[in-house]
Amino acid sequence: MNEADESVTGSGDQSGTNAFLEKLAQLLTAKNQVVPTPQFEGSAAPITIKLDGTNFGLWSQVVEMFVLSKDKLGHLNGDRSQPPGGNPAHHKWKIDDSIVKGWIINSLAPNLIGNFIRFSTAKEVWDAIATTFFDGNDASQVYDLKKRVSRLKQSGGQVEEYYNSLQALWREIDFRRPNPMKCKEDIEKYNQVVQEDRVYTFLDGLNDRLDGVRADVLQMTPLPTVEQAYARVRREDVRQSVMLGKGQIVPDSMAMISKISAPHEVKNSSSYNLNSSTKFSSNGNRNQTQPAMGIGCTHCGNPKHTKDTCFKLHGYPEWWKELKKKRQESEKARAAVAVSENYCVFPSGESDVKTEPAGYSDEGDNWAWY
């Protein structure tokens, strides 16, 4: 074989090797390539709130927030319109719209599903629900909401329940009467006025035993938001709960009952020990005894109560003023009886009529009915 033949043979072997390597590379690439599988979101929406016909405002906000997080809000507001039938994107749009429609249907109460499932698109379902359950121009609904706000009071209940009820009504009002201002400064001023009105409303509905913290909030400059006012009131409510009721709030009515009924309960027993320092006899009179050793207030020096229950240190409860008023009335009644005895028709010392003191009236013992 001459040099020319060897050259041809060498070049042929080289080209064959290159072709083989190229083919092998293609096969390996095809083997390792991962073909993406289309992923479809299920129609079972994790929306826990159900539309029952009375909570459209809250329900619609939750649904909008969820659909927006999935980048499909255009199927509700019409921004993402349906492509023509021959458009390649039509099939994908139908799938997405069906998913959004399923989210809405699954968030309805069972008795409402049949009224809206027949609509063909998610927007049609959304518009039909809004038409059925919401009318932003319905003055009677706004009037009813504002009336419920004005009449809502704590009425001896928990502060949290009272505040949450107010917030629910205010959110519904805001949804039906949004801020009408356009300028940024006007928007802030409008929101500030609304916040001040709501602080006044919240404070007005509190129990009388929270009158002290109510006055403190009103004296703050600038006036706090309703959230800040609630936080301040709640701290005071918890403090009273710990100091006066060992973890339970003493209702206003129960405080009044206890301080009025205590003298009668004492009267029916031969003796009653109060803080191990005072006893009452069977006729209701108080017998002073020496206070027990080690018991007394280190703040005010009164041996008849401890520092933990000292009203001068922790503040007087709201029923204290009314108790003092009752005591004054009792004193006046006893004075009237004393005057009438001067005109008694019985000779002195012969009358069988006896007058018992009307309850316990020691002005200095502020712990008496506590």
Rank of each mutant, 00 (worst) to 15 (best):
F20C: 01
T121H: 00
P110N: 06
I105Q: 08
S258Q: 10
A215C: 03
R198M: 09
V238F: 06
K70P: 01
D208I: 14
T355M: 05
K321V: 09
M1V: 13
S258K: 14
D365Q: 13
N111L: 05
P36V: 00
E227F: 06
R214D: 00
G42N: 08
I257W: 04
P180G: 05
C297S: 07
L24T: 08
Y316S: 06
V233Q: 05
D13S: 13
K259H: 01
T278F: 00
E160F: 15
R234Q: 04
A335V: 02
E356I: 14
R286M: 12
F280L: 02
L73V: 15
C310V: 04
S150D: 01
H305L: 00
K184S: 14
S11Q: 12
N106C: 07
S107R: 12
F20K: 11
I105F: 10
Y272W: 10
C297V: 14
N287G: 03
Y230R: 04
G245Y: 02
I47P: 01
I257D: 00
Q328F: 10
P88D: 06
L21T: 12
T132L: 02
S69M: 12
N18S: 05
P180F: 04
A231M: 07
D138K: 15
V100D: 02
L73C: 14
D5L: 05
K153M: 10
D308F: 12
W369C: 09
P38Y: 02
R232Y: 14
K267M: 03
I117W: 05
A45M: 09
I295D: 02
Q328A: 13
L206M: 06
A231H: 08
E331Q: 13
I187H: 05
G86I: 04
E22R: 15
G114Y: 03
K72E: 13
P88I: 11
K246Q: 08
E172A: 09
V353Y: 07
S165V: 03
S15R: 14
D197H: 09
V213Q: 00
D127W: 03
F66S: 14
P178L: 11
A333K: 15
E41D: 07
V345H: 12
Y190D: 01
K123A: 04
T54Y: 06
G247D: 07
H264A: 04
H75Q: 07
L27P: 01
L152M: 06
V125N: 01
E236K: 14
K94W: 00
V125G: 01
S15T: 08
K189E: 12
L210R: 08
D204Q: 13
